[in-house]
Every structure is written in C-alpha cells, then in structure tokens.
Measured scan of single mutants.
Amino acid sequence: TKKDTKLYCICKTPYDESKFYIGCDRCQNWYHGRCVGILQSEAELIDEYVCPQCQST
C-alpha cells in the first residue's frame, strides 16, 4: 500500500525541500511562497504570516 504522504499548501503537493515555504501563524499549515505570493526575502521581514484561508475567516 502507498504510504500516506502529507500534502502541503493550497496546491496540495508533498513537501519539497528545494522549495521555499512559509508557515501560517494561525493554522500552522505550510504554504509555498510562490503559491501565496510571498518572496523569501519578504518573508524574512514579516513578523506574523496569516494564510489566505485564515484571512478569509
């Protein structure tokens, strides 16, 4: 049987260590910077990140 692979981001793909991720400070989920429109250089300046799903609630 195929091992359950945890899926990340709004694009629902397995973790890829070569890509940049940003963690939501509300739901603790991880998102590709590219998918949520945040560059790694911008993320370093953000104190708290809230993902699109949490922003809409």
Rank of each mutant, 00 (worst) to 15 (best):
Y15R: 08
P52R: 12
G37Q: 07
Q55A: 12
Q53D: 14
V50Y: 05
P52D: 15
V36E: 03
D47H: 15
E17H: 08
D47G: 15
A43D: 04
Q28I: 05
E17M: 09
G23W: 08
T1S: 10
Y15M: 13
K12V: 01
I46E: 06
Y8V: 11
V36K: 03
C35T: 00
I46Q: 11
R34K: 15
R34D: 15
Y31N: 03
C35F: 00
H32Q: 01
K12W: 03
P52N: 12
Y21P: 02
Q53H: 13
C51L: 01
W30P: 08
I22T: 04
R26C: 14
V36Y: 00
G33Q: 13
Y21D: 14
I22K: 03
V50E: 15
S18K: 06
C54Q: 02
K6L: 11
A43W: 07
Y49C: 02
E44L: 10
C24D: 02
K19Y: 05
Y21T: 05
S18G: 10
N29H: 11
F20G: 06
I38A: 04
S56K: 12
N29R: 11
E42F: 06
E44K: 13
K3D: 10
R26Q: 07
G23P: 05
T1K: 07
H32F: 01
G33H: 15
C24S: 00
Y49S: 04
Y21V: 07
S18W: 02
L45W: 07
E17C: 05
T5W: 06
T5H: 12
C51E: 02
E48G: 10
I38F: 07
L7H: 14
T13F: 04
E42N: 06
I10P: 04
I10Q: 04
E17V: 05
E48R: 15
D25R: 14
S56W: 03
R26S: 14
G33R: 12
L45F: 10
C24F: 02
Y15L: 09
T57P: 12
C35W: 00
K3A: 09
T57R: 10
Q40C: 09
A43K: 13
E44F: 10
Q53F: 06
S41V: 12
F20N: 12
L7N: 14
N29L: 07
D4R: 04
P52F: 14
Y49D: 02
I38P: 04
